[in-house]
Design a protein around this nucleic acid. Structure first.
Lengths: 206, 206
DNA sequence: GTCTATACACTGATAGAC
DNA sequence: GTCTATCAGTGTATAGAC
């Protein structure tokens, strides 16, 4: 993008992505990033001459390209929708959290209009569109408008992200267990019989 | 809390809540708030002597008290779980967006430890606990650990918030329609037959 | 490639006039 | 109650030494 790629530059981008993902654009200063790299703030400008905004945009573009690839691969390797969603969730859980809502509502307004447009495009392509493709067949079969697949994609993304950031205190189960549970609910319904317990009679207690 | 309550002070708190809700703690400056009130930045200190952090904490505490009241009322006035969730979603849609993830991950770390603890407590009480109570009976009937109700509460909150911030471009349906659809999916399951309400062929509604 | 030094703008906060 | 004036602290960015 700018300047050739070097291992040192790679470290800068990775560190920046981690911090931006954790704390958001405004909360992370160039000094924070430099400190994490045991460098001085001014030295960052050698690797990223464009400054903070250019660094953020490049980091997010990279992240979105990676997510697009990762999600599509995850989805392609599973047979049924449940497996696709589980694979997609595992990919998301293994990556630095995205915090889609914060990105859209808080971080994006801080960058230039041109950068915003490009980032929105990449983000939609990588996350929403990829997930919506998973939901498209069932939405079609239910004879619902295609836009419903987009809602479902957004909702699925929101749920998985919540699992990432929910206080791990509750239950103490692995996050994959939590997310698989929520996927089962999504597909089978909360009011219907649970999968494993389908044979157990439901009787009132106490 | 500090100083008596006046109409002018009320305006300060309302404006601050709107801006904090839209842009987050770090992105909003005291000058932004003062400008929106057509005041000078220094004048805010008359109404909120504690400064920015105290203002933020008081604003969020107020918001959480209001949400607790509003959600409990919404939940209490409906009979079945579907109605309760619809009422809760309508309350949330009518209020300034919370952006729970941003609040927890980005805004909270910027305030003092003591304030953080208090805010986490209020937020959990007002949002998670209230919604978890709605899910508790069905979780019980499904013979699942109580912690599942907390997952479901977090997931539900995340989904409703996503609906708030999703580009309104998609579909163009009212947000209540979108959220009711997602509630039906949650309860009935995506793989099962659409509920009678969702089953209606897609036609113009008024 | 990384450093020091520094310019410049912005932000939160205080003091005091009216 | 609101203002002007001001300051200390912080953040981005640039210039130039090594």
């Amino acid at each position: 993008m700018s300047i050739e790629n070097s291992a040192a530059r790679e470290r800068v981008l990775e560190t920046a992505e981690r911090l931006f993902s954790e704390q958001g654009y405004a909360a992370v200063t160039l000094r924070d990033i430099a400190d994490a790299l045991k460098m001085k703030q001014a030295s960052l400008y050698y690797h990223v001459p464009g400054g903070k905004e250019a660094l953020y945009v490049e980091v997010m573009q990279r992240a979105m390209a990676r997510h697009r690839e990762g999600l599509q691969t995850a989805v392609a390797t599973a047979q049924d929708m449940r497996g696709q969603l589980q694979a997609a969730a595992r990919w998301l859980l293994a990556q630095p959290a995205i915090n889609y809502g914060r990105m859209m509502q808080t971080d994006m307004p801080a960058v230039s209009e041109a950068h915003q447009a490009a980032l929105r495009q990449s983000t939609h392509q990588a996350l929403i569109a990829t997930l919506a493709a998973v939901f498209a067949p069932i939405v079609e079969r239910r004879r619902e408008p295609r836009s419903r697949a987009v809602y479902l994609a957004g909702a699925f993304l929101a749920v998985v992200e919540t699992v990432v950031q929910l206080p791990a205190a509750f239950g103490g189960e692995p996050r994959t267990t939590m997310v698989d549970y929520l996927i089962d609910i999504l597909l089978d319904g909360l009011l219907n019989e649970p999968h494993e317990l389908a044979l157990q009679p439901i009787t009132k207690e106490e």
